[in-house]
């Protein structure tokens, strides 16, 4: 019976939290659904693999909402995709990378996503994130590993008219990170 549920029945750690706008702050905090995520490591990368751009500057996001790639370092990318792509994407990447030494590691279950959106979203994030999230320093399509309070996160700013951030953290930190963001939104005043 579990067989049939695999890939559809992931027990997400934040599954029980609905989208919330704590204290009517205009900041919406929404745990993301099940997604596939890969850590890609490669030196001297090709321009793209599996249709994902590898030649963008460090700390930049490319792709779209359903299939995105964030360059976190000179030889490190975080890739997000629909859950259904989780089984096929590694092979497609590997094929395009060929003989180049690389590592593709499935971290779909390691990472938990939380979307934070609203005009004042950056204020809530800055309760615990020490980065300059202003337009000039952290425009749309920025992506970086950083801190939120006492947890490490990856912070991605998605494109769009309304500021929309994706916070990714490790699974066991997700309760803390979610609680931190809710408290931060309450105190954003």
């Amino acid at each position: 019976m579990l067989e049939a549920l695999y890939r559809t029945a992931r027990a997400l750690p934040l599954g029980r939290f609905p989208a919330a706008d704590p204290a009517g702050s205009g900041i919406v905090i929404q745990p993301a659904g099940a997604e596939a995520r890969l850590s890609l490591r490669v030196r001297d990368p090709v321009a793209s693999a599996a249709g994902l751009a590898l030649d963008r500057p460090i700390n930049r996001l490319s792709g779209d909402a359903r299939r995105w790639i964030a360059r976190l370092g000179p030889d490190e990318w975080l890739i997000g995709a629909d859950e259904a792509e989780g089984d096929t994407l590694p092979g497609a990447l590997a094929a395009d990378l060929g003989e180049r030494p690389h590592a593709i590691v499935d971290i779909s279950h390691r990472n938990v996503g939380i979307d934070v959106s609203g005009a004042r979203a950056a204020i809530a994030l800055n309760a615990g994130c020490p980065l300059d999230l202003g337009e000039a320093a952290f425009p749309a399509r920025s992506a970086t590993r950083t801190l939120l309070g006492k947890a490490e996160i990856v912070l991605i700013r998605r494109p769009g008219a309304v500021p929309h951030y994706r916070v990714e953290c490790w699974r066991s930190f997700s309760t803390y990170v979610h609680g931190f963001l809710v408290e931060a939104a309450r105190s954003a005043g």
């Binding site: 700390n59 976190l72 370092g73 000179p74 970086t144 590993r145 950083t146 801190l147 490490e152």
Partner: peptide, 8 residues
């Protein structure tokens, strides 16, 4: 080391 960043 930029431990909580690019890791380099």
């Amino acid at each position: 080391c930029h431990a909580h960043g690019c890791g380099r």
